[in-house]
């Protein structure tokens, strides 16, 4: 039975060969903060970190993760981005928000002081149908400013 490391905890996982990481997280481990909005890697709502890299969990097979560490929104609840998103009103319906925050966490880790264009480049794969983009930019800039 393969093991999966999620947010620092080890889990035994089982499932058919085509089981995705997103399904495993949501249905088997109860980590429903990761959302599935398109199921085919086009929208970014399912973004998690795999060994720190933003990864689309809805098109990642769970058996392919191996011993790499998975971080979901549940592992990032204390990240300053969460508070920054709330304060900037960078969410409306909120369905894309966990994925946005996961993507943004990798950005601010790699580029503590991102320019607007850096944000637009790094976040372009996370769709938001409510149109919270201007506030997402603000939230990420606020975290970068606070880190100074």
């Amino acid at each position: 039975m393969p093991e999966l490391v999620v947010n620092g905890e080890r889990h035994d996982v089982e499932g058919p060969a085509m089981r995705t990481l997103a399904e495993t997280l949501r249905e088997d481990l109860g980590l429903t903060g990761t959302k599935i909005a398109c199921g085919e890697g086009h929208c970014g709502a399912c973004t998690v970190l795999v060994d720190g890299a933003p990864t689309l969990s809805c098109i990642t097979l769970v058996h392919a993760v191996g011993d790499r560490e998975v971080t979901t929104i549940e592992g990032l609840r204390d990240h300053p981005l969460v508070d920054a998103f709330v304060r900037a009103d960078a969410l409306q319906c909120g369905f894309c928000t966990p994925g946005q925050i996961v993507s943004a966490s990798a950005l601010v880790r790699d580029q503590p002081e991102p320019a607007r264009d850096d944000i637009r480049h790094a976040m372009a794969g996370n769709l938001c149908r409510c149109g919270t983009y201007p506030k997402i930019e603000e939230a990420i800039l606020a975290v970068a400013a606070d880190a100074d």
Binding site: R26, E27, G30, L31, T32, G33, T34, K35, I36, T72, I73, E74, R77, V82, F85, V86, R87, D89, L91, C93, G94, F95, T97, P98, I101
Partner: peptide, 21 residues
């Protein structure tokens, strides 16, 4: 005012219909 549902949504705690199991 920051939205009152913001923390639950941003932290991935909010239970949408998609999350009902």
């Amino acid at each position: 005012a920051a939205r009152v549902t913001g923390p639950a949504r941003a932290r991935g705690e909010a239970e949408y219909t998609a999350d009902v199991q």
